[in-house]
Design a protein around this nucleic acid. Structure first.
Ligand SMILES: [Mn+2]
Ligand SMILES: [Mn+2]
Ligand SMILES: [Mn+2]
Ligand SMILES: [Mn+2]
Lengths: 219, 219
DNA sequence: AAATATTTTTAGACAAGTCTAAATAAATTA
DNA sequence: TAATTTATTTAGACTTGTCTAAAAATATTT
């Protein structure tokens, strides 16, 4: 059985691998985990001993098949709990991540499976991220197109957001933006990369920071 | 914020105090926690530094007002989660204790309160134990009378069971005994303290071990 | 009350997970 | 290529929670 810390490292390596493809460097992982590189080296040795990652000194690390499976099970739990909190306990989508960080470490396959059934086998979490099934299989959704990429007069709906700070979620709530919200691009400004959009009949201007964190599926 | 270990000690001290009244001895606590007495001494010093228990060398320990409040909040979470698992996720009452041991350490008052509301403010857990409210207030139920205490021809219903091993729960399930089950005492045997009872029209003989773990409210 | 037995504490150790400071390897720049 | 910078690892330390073995305090028995 893995410790919470080991599980968190696996999750971090997984999510960095999704972005960065290749082997994950010690420094990158240390930044993600908010620990010092020396701590990462220690942990990476341990996970390597357990055959959950492959690791050669100075060459970074990569999940093994087994390690990736474990990472996906933790992510599965995280996202199922997020759905539970939003759908059943009436939490806002901006409030659930921290609590799910704790709940994801509860050890009981039966609990996870019962929870999934109770929730009606949801395929996405409240932020639009896909939920792996008990075998680790999940739908890859289109997180390729971001609001900034939509051309002028283009129209789409929100299919996800970058899993980010609570400040960002509060921002989204303020403008009543959630999964499924329809957005039309009115104008784009090159000088600061800001963007003018139409949401629920209202014109709103977004900074490029925001426009890069909202994933869009064209209509 | 307390560690899981600190929380478990507080809970153990609380439950021993309920039985034993006075100050809890190091050895008793070590047995309850399945640790060595020397480990208890260390922990007890730490909890004392945090003003959660009062402790004088060689004199045992006792919860302070604050410590008792914390213990009750952990117990509250434990029992609410047990209700959730049985009522919402269709677990058997014999399967939930171990999982609740993990869930009781999730830190979020809002989560606990939302869960309580979602469950309809239950007053008892699946084993008949009362659930403290957010202020730590709960109904003291009648766990004084045990099946062994019922006189011949006396009739009562099960209001609780000693929170025990999974083997005991399987035993209860086998005989279809749960909260509310009606039991009539037919005969008692002094030589081995066993007891013959009538449950759902069937005569069953129980050992004294069992008869001492089933709490009865007379009808 | 003295001797003995039991309980409790202390001393020193270990594993997990982290840190700082120093050493070493790799990458970049000149 | 040599010098310099950056990334990574090693060495040694600290905290938490546990352990064993030994010492000290308390309780029980003769
Ligand atoms: Mn999340
Ligand atoms: Mn986590
Ligand atoms: Mn329980
Ligand atoms: Mn616990």
């Amino acid at each position: 059985m893995l410790s919470q810390s080991e599980e968190n490292y696996l999750k971090a390596i997984y999510s960095l691998s999704e972005l960065q493809g290749e082997a994950i460097s010690t420094n990158l992982l240390s930044e993600k985990m908010s620990t010092k590189p020396s701590s990462v080296t220690d942990m990476v040795k341990k996970l390597s001993d357990k055959k959950l990652i492959s690791y050669k000194k100075y060459q970074g690390c990569e999940l093994t098949i087994v390690g990736k499976k474990m990472a996906l099970q933790i992510i599965r739990k995280h996202r199922l709990w997020e759905v539970f909190l939003v759908k059943k306990l009436n939490f806002g989508w901006d409030e659930v991540h921290e609590i799910a960080e704790q709940l994801e470490h509860i050890q009981s396959t039966k609990l996870t499976d019962h929870l999934e059934e109770y929730l009606g086998f949801p395929r996405f979490d409240p932020h639009g991220d896909p939920i792996p099934d008990k075998n680790g299989v999940f739908e890859k959704i289109n997180k390729s197109k971001v609001l900034s990429d939509v051309i002028i007069n283009g129209k789409g709906s929100v299919v996800g957001v970058e899993d980010g700070s609570s400040g960002f979620f509060q921002f989204l709530n303020r403008y009543e933006i959630g999964l499924g919200t329809e957005i039309q691009v009115i104008e784009k400004f090159d000088f600061d990369l800001s963007i003018l959009v139409l949401i629920n009949g209202k014109e709103i201007s977004f900074s490029s920071v925001v426009a890069n964190k909202i994933f869009i599926q064209l209509l």
